[in-house]
Amino acid sequence: MKTFFWLVKREFWEHKGGFVTAPLVAGAIGFLLNAMLIAFGEGHYAGANFHTNFSAAYDSADLAKAGVVVDGLLYGVTLMILIVTAIVVFFYCLGSLYDDRRDRSVLFWKSLPLSDTTTVLSKLASAVIFAPAIAVVVGVVVGLALTIMFVGVASLHGLSAWPLLMQAHPFKVTLNLILLIPLYALWALPTAGWLMLCSAFARSKPFLWAIALPVGTGVLVSWWGLMIGDSGFSRWFWPNVVGRMLGGLIPAGWVNSTSRVVHSSDIDLALHQGDPAAALDQIGLAFHYSAVTNPSLYVGVLAGAAMIAGAIWFRRWRDDS
């Protein structure tokens, strides 16, 4: 356990820029853009109804709606930062078991009594648990800062700050986001596994392997579909194989695999009825975790675990440094 902790720490020493600085910068930019938007609205429309994502909230008649805007803000900012982290993690996975073989520092790590299994798992955990967790923390902090700014501005428009804040659910949203990390990790496993397998396996250019193999296969499948005049398999193959192998890091990628307890029409309905709070509640934890019952998720987890096992094997025996 102690070794695992230090191995994760090592990953963060090496990738502090991607894991910590990048989400911080993204958060700062997000904050700045929102502040600019508010300033623009205030300056040009002098507090009249202007269209930003806050506009609904300036309606003092409907505090509940205003609260939803605050909640949406937290989700939105975190999502944006998670996307940045996803890009970082994609390339992190590709380099995770390759870069140290290329610069031969793998020989130093291998001179220490560290098992290859622990090493690979520490990198996997950094990719799908700890890096997203940092993104969530940064997202929530930036979101709360935005909330404070927003409430401050709203109070200038005659809304009282406290009732407005009472209508928002920052703690619930934060808790939801944190509880979604395990689902994110499970959903991302096939992609992380595939990228790490390529990283451990490739003698050079892991990026090319990782992209060319699934996309090339997809093209072949599509071509075959055209030849036999039935593209059904191809339509299944692209999202369920190519998509899961390369796109699993995209946050909330599972929403199309939820068991649809919620229908998007329900969300539309709630929005049309002017009840965004109900709409937001529809896509709560229960909605997200209903994806667990979908074979797409657990088959992906199994495939991901198999690819991680492959990566561990290659890490042990790849002998080219």
Binding site: W13, E14, D100, D103, R104, S105, L107, F108, S111
Partner: peptide
């Protein structure tokens, strides 16, 4: 223990 070669310590360490 082994020292494989000079300069195999990771550069970021």
């Amino acid at each position: 223990c082994f020292i494989a070669d000079v300069a195999v310590l990771p550069r970021w360490l």
